[in-house]
Simulated assay, not measured.
Amino acid sequence: MADAFSIAIQSMQNDMQRMDIISENVANSATPGYRRALSTNQSFGDVLQSSSLSNVTHSIEITLPTVTSVLDTASGSIKSTSQPLDLAISGDGYFELTTPDGLAYTRAGNFHINEDGHLVSQDGYPVSGKGGDIIVNGKSTPTITPSGEVSDGSTAVGQIRIVSFADKHGLQTRSGGLLVSTNNDAETSDSSAQLQIGFLENANVIPLNEMVSMLETSRHFESQQKLFQGYDEQISSAIQKLGQF
């Protein structure tokens, strides 16, 4: 396949991946605690460095890099809900949840007590405490302090664990806005961040900015289509002229 075709196809595939990332951000713009993904790829210098030169008689073979996503770790705005089990983290850190696929992390603190007395997330995943799951036995709503201590009446039942990562960009977004670590050996530590009770963190997505990025990506995709079609027409024309001889 000609190089121009290869470049156009890879570029259009990259645009489709960017569009998927942008669409996910827009879809979660109202999800509490959601942190948007940013599309990224290698710089031109990195591409040249990774390209191979087999010998001096051959040209350098350059492959366009694929698009990957990284997490935007900027905090979202805080809104008041006045709900005693709605929590927002002030500072760096994430709530830790136990899911069927392993540990996951979130900034969304819209918690509730399930029928078994466990403190769980909106999707029903248990919230990790420093000593395990947090279980409430009483009928009344538990109280939570800014340091994360949970009390059932006058009885302390646990402390919510807030973790931080040495490599914040090693986290990636999964379904439901949950975050997972791409590195199984990622170092975590207990965060000293405080909680705001009766508040939730909004997504750090600005829909208008995402729509502008979507428009730019769409225009770039269209330009690559024109490049592909133009090059195809040139080859067809060349073949026809050769056939006349």
Rank of each mutant, 00 (worst) to 15 (best):
83 Q>F: 04
116 D>S: 03
56 V>G: 15
139 K>M: 11
156 A>Q: 13
124 G>L: 02
134 I>A: 04
144 I>F: 01
95 F>T: 01
155 T>R: 15
114 N>M: 01
55 N>H: 07
64 L>P: 00
57 T>G: 06
65 P>S: 11
60 I>G: 12
118 H>A: 09
75 S>I: 05
122 Q>M: 08
106 T>K: 02
93 G>C: 05
84 P>E: 00
119 L>M: 05
76 G>E: 07
81 T>F: 04
141 T>H: 08
93 G>L: 07
78 I>W: 10
62 I>A: 14
108 A>M: 08
58 H>R: 13
63 T>V: 08
115 E>K: 11
81 T>G: 05
145 T>K: 13
111 F>D: 04
117 G>I: 04
143 T>Y: 03
152 D>Q: 03
130 K>M: 14
114 N>G: 00
87 L>T: 12
151 S>G: 09
121 S>Q: 02
57 T>R: 12
143 T>G: 08
130 K>N: 13
136 V>N: 00
138 G>S: 08
96 E>T: 12
92 D>I: 11
137 N>C: 01
97 L>N: 00
103 L>Q: 13
56 V>S: 15
62 I>T: 09
132 G>F: 07
71 L>V: 13
74 A>Y: 06
76 G>Q: 08
110 N>C: 06
155 T>F: 12
56 V>C: 06
64 L>E: 07
136 V>S: 03
66 T>C: 00
128 S>V: 11
59 S>Y: 07
94 Y>P: 01
122 Q>L: 10
133 D>F: 07
57 T>F: 08
128 S>F: 06
57 T>N: 11
124 G>I: 10
99 T>L: 05
136 V>G: 00
148 G>A: 14
130 K>Y: 08
61 E>T: 09
111 F>S: 02
144 I>V: 15
107 R>V: 09
156 A>L: 11
86 D>Y: 09
59 S>W: 07
